[in-house]
Design a protein around this nucleic acid. Structure first.
Length: 295
DNA sequence: AGACGTCTTAGAAAATGACT
DNA sequence: AGTCATTTTCTAAGACGTCT
């Protein structure tokens, strides 16, 4: 059962899952060769944004790259494209074809043209009205991750919420979303309101977690590693609709539920979860399962 | 038409770095 | 360590597009 001790936070412990590629932390992708970029392009063209486990599949197509790497690389490219569009930097050598522009049109860049930043400051003037891109609606999943991040970091720390929870949104986007969320939350009249994603609150998020394996759900895994605390036990918040995606990992064995991995991620290839599984990790990257776990 | 959601922007506050 | 300048981040307000 999830408690409200989310504020007790310790640093992520990548050592717990040294070979896992689903832990999203601060690590940045390494240098990308031209060949890797080409593979990346091909993978993105092959697996569109609606494809379940898209990033996992993309990572599989690029030897040596993890899910974290490709997601991070994608984010970097979003920023590059924004700057290129604004005419602030020369067209990079990354793409010598029409790929970048086609990619933008075909892969959901609409609305992602945020204020182009150099050193965090917007450099370009405002777009003319007809250039304004329509907004990209927040998905329920993004909103729930936003709420989890909000619980952990509190109101105002949009940077960390963006960085660690809603990796698909910039801090500015998170802040804007939060602004309207709190307005909605504080507006008293609940009658005659249209249904809104903002009706999903931190409270309803908690309610959804139990007792039934709802969305997301919590499973427990225990560490049998000698290098870890003897009673290491983790609770993993998983998306029951996409059971191989992990929202967060907690350690409830000390000081209540400590959030040890405050990020969203995807389980290693071949490993699947459901809300009733429990796990033992040998901390060597493999996770032995119980209750018919596949890996 | 009005509600809603996303994006944009200006200004304020906080953080960081350079210099003495 | 203190001061100042610069950079980064956040807040608030509102423009704009979409939906009911």
């Amino acid at each position: 059962m999830m408690t409200n001790s989310w504020m007790e936070v310790i640093s992520p412990h990548p050592a717990y899952f040294p070979n896992s590629n689903w832990i999203l932390g601060e690590q940045k992708s390494g240098n990308w060769t031209q060949q890797e970029n080409k593979l990346f392009e091909n993978a993105l063209a092959h697996f569109d944004e609606d494809m379940p486990d898209r990033w996992e599949k993309v990572a599989e197509m690029i030897p040596g790259k993890t899910v974290v790497d490709v997601m991070s690389h994608y984010q970097d490219l979003e920023e590059d494209v924004s700057c290129i569009e604004a005419g602030l930097i020369p067209f990079p050598g990354y793409s010598s074809s029409s790929f970048t522009l086609d990619w933008e049109n075909d892969h959901g860049f609409d609305g992602l043209r945020q204020a182009c930043c150099v050193g965090g400051k917007r450099l370009g003037g405002r777009l003319s009205d007809h250039e304004r891109k329509k907004g990209v609606p927040w998905t329920e999943e993004e909103h729930k991750r936003f709420l989890i991040g909000l619980k952990k970091y509190g109101k105002g720390d949009w940077r960390n919420i963006s960085r660690n929870f809603v990796v698909t949104r910039t801090p500015t986007q998170v802040a804007s979303h939060a602004q309207k969320y709190f307005i909605r939350l504080n507006s008293g009249t609940k009658d005659k309101r249209r249904a809104s994603i903002h009706d999903i609150t931190t409270t309803s998020l908690d309610d959804n977690r139990s007792p039934s394996p709802s969305h997301p759900s919590v499973v427990t895994m225990q560490s049998s590693s000698a290098s870890a605390p003897a009673t290491s036990e983790f609770s993993m918040v998983v998306d029951s609709k996409q059971p191989n995606e992990v929202v967060s990992v907690f350690s409830p064995s000390t000081n209540g539920n400590q959030l040890i991995q405050p990020t969203y991620g995807i389980l290693p290839y071949g490993m699947k979860l459901n809300a009733k599984n429990s796990f033992h990790s040998n901390l060597n990257g493999s996770i032995a399962g119980q209750n018919g776990v596949l890996f």
